[in-house]
């Protein structure tokens, strides 16, 4: 079976709520996405490339409704991968993650990116995202609770907590970058 047909079939089933088909689709896409990212940002480290791959996967997830069932999947996937890779390159080039040393009272390792963020700034920024996400970041990122524990407390699945955490961290990073831009 042609890859387009296969992926089309998987994504169609995924879009009807079939988790197993979706997992298979994303798993098979990941290496292709990784190739696109590597081809365009070959100078980046392996961690950085994996970050971008994850950003692309999140983008595919968030925009999966923009694929029309009659269309081939591959061009759609490549377009998203290229767009997100370019976007990631732009964000990193603008140097949004440079934090002045003096500001770093304490640092929080961001497991999603390996970048650092000042805790003092983090407190301010946490107020700017919704309460639920902020709570998840505090619990997982600062208090060090596991996604399972937080999920049990909030009545969410472990997976949902991970996704929420990942998204919140991405938003915080964007906020930090926006802030640095205004500071310059």
């Amino acid at each position: 079976m042609d890859r387009n047909d296969r992926w089309g079939d998987l994504l169609r089933r995924a879009n009807r709520g079939e988790g197993a088909a979706y997992a298979l689709f994303l798993t098979e896409c990941a290496p292709v996405i990784r190739n696109v990212v590597r081809g365009r940002r070959g100078d980046s480290g392996a961690d950085d490339i994996e970050d971008i791959v994850q950003e692309v996967l999140l983008a595919v997830h968030a925009k999966r409704h923009t694929w029309r069932e009659a269309d081939p999947v591959t061009p759609w996937l490549y377009a998203i991968a290229r767009y997100k890779t370019a976007d990631a390159g732009r964000k990193r080039r603008t140097g949004g993650t440079q934090v002045p040393l003096d500001d770093v009272a304490e640092v929080l390792p961001d497991e999603a990116s390996g970048e650092i963020m000042a805790v003092r700034d983090l407190g301010v920024m946490l107020d700017r995202i919704d309460e639920r996400s902020a709570g998840i970041v505090r619990a997982v990122g600062i208090a060090g609770e596991s996604a399972g524990e937080v999920g049990a407390r909030l009545g969410m699945s472990e997976g949902a907590v991970r996704v929420a955490y990942h998204r919140a961290m991405t938003r915080l990073k964007d906020l930090a970058e926006a802030k640095d831009e205004t500071r310059e």
């Binding site: 999603a112 997976g159 991970r162």
Partner: peptide
Amino acid sequence: MKTEDLINALAAEAAPAPAASVE
């Protein structure tokens, strides 16, 4: 987060894609 974990997390969210299109 490992990419594999992210994929599993996303797949757990495989609710039907939101219906309202751009059109």
